[in-house]
Amino acid sequence: MIEQRKLRVATVSLAGCFGCHMSFLDIDEHLFELLERIEFDRSPLTDIKHCGPCDIGLVEGGVCNAENVHVLREFRANCRTLVALGACAINGGLPAQRNHLDIGACLDEVYRSRPGLARAQVPNDPELPLLLDKVHPIHEVVRVDYFLPGCPPSGEAIWKFLSDLVNGRTPRVTGPLLHFD
């Protein structure tokens, strides 16, 4: 019998808090089972900086700056199946709660107007990615194949979703596993 090729999986946290990645690790001993079927490409777990051709891309967080847009497009270009993982990737989540505010006023408030700031200025190092005026869910920037809601999705939900996906079933998370909070 020919050994099955391992599926390559890339993961990233854009405008997220890494909570979904932590929840991913909460699948605990299922990680061993999963690692028999997958191997990681770009991910905070491997520290690979750019995404190569992959079967599955898991994207945590929304899109809040120019770098997020580039990374997300790189994921879309390389991943056969792209998954929005968690509330922020799906609707912008907590970072998107700045969306009704003017971004210039936000930066002023944080970096210039607060008391006790010496030589207060908005950070402008060219290395820093420019902020977008609004935080966007990832489906507003690229096509997304599957959505897994939750803040974060529970380990059980992530395991159900991934085991469906790697075993060739349409991933479906319902009932108590489906949560927006």
Binding site: A87, I90, H139, F147, R172, L178
Partner: peptide, 24 residues
């Protein structure tokens, strides 16, 4: 934004979205 709403879990809009499997 359900995660920051104190009605989360008691909200009929959210509950219907669960029931009808609104994922996005």
């Amino acid at each position: 934004f359900c995660p920051s709403c104190e009605k989360s879990g008691d909200c009929q809009l959210q509950a219907l979205a669960y029931d009808l499997e609104m994922l996005t």
